[in-house]
């Protein structure tokens, strides 16, 4: 089961991203409707379409013989598109919801999107497959703390990519712990 974390600035620019593979098996079975997908065209555009519709991951699943799904082969571009698209809902929900943690705010293809919006309008977006509310909440809280610590660095500006190895290491550790 894989998780994708993106820290997005208010101008929708990712400042940090992380792909985390957890040992837990995916709880969501692929939809019955998406079995036996036809390979209907070989043009590049068809490839885009296939990827965007989420079919590529399914195809891979069948190629690997089902079972545990590995997220490694999933199209990174599509993951990013989904994370970006989910901002629509996040922005909408944030205006009504006072909490910072937005649990399973959006669903797209097989992904569930959870988000965490800091008071500074930074959006932490996590794409995940299973249901793990408390773990994700704890994970977000830790990432937030790490993020705030990074931001307190006077040499770090708000819109710069977070390149700190310490930050990265700690986020990974936190992901390992909670996800």
């Amino acid at each position: 089961m894989s998780h994708h974390l993106f820290l997005l600035s208010p101008s929708d620019t990712p400042l940090y991203s992380l792909t985390h593979f957890s040992a837990k098996a995916s709880q969501v079975a692929p939809s019955a409707l998406s079995a036996n997908l036809p390979a209907w065209s070989t043009s590049a555009f068809a490839g885009t379409l296939t990827a965007l519709s989420g079919a590529s991951s399914v195809v891979q699943t069948s190629a690997q013989g089902g079972g545990v799904r590995m997220g490694g082969g999933q199209d990174r571009h599509v993951i990013q598109m989904i994370a970006n698209a989910s901002l629509d809902v996040i922005e909408d929900v944030v205006r009504r919801d006072n909490g910072m943690y937005l649990k399973s705010v959006d669903k797209f293809n097989e992904w569930t999107v959870s988000a965490f919006v800091t008071p500074g309008n930074m959006k932490f977006v996590l794409l995940h497959e299973g249901k793990n509310d408390e773990g994700i909440r704890a994970f977000f809280a830790e990432v937030w703390e790490l993020y705030v610590k990074t931001m307190m660095n006077p040499f770090h500006t708000a819109h710069r990519m977070i390149g700190s190895a310490v930050f990265d290491g700690r986020v990974r550790a936190s992901a390992k712990k909670h996800l």
């Binding site: 998406s34 036809p38 991951s57 399914v58 705010v105 959006d106 669903k107 797209f108």
Partner: peptide, 20 residues
């Protein structure tokens, strides 16, 4: 009716099955 509610409904339509 809230927008996320509608979006949640609509997003169900999108999936690999579109290739069928």
């Amino acid at each position: 009716v809230t927008r996320p509610q509608m979006a949640a409904v609509i997003s169900q339509a999108h999936g690999p099955w579109l290739l069928h």
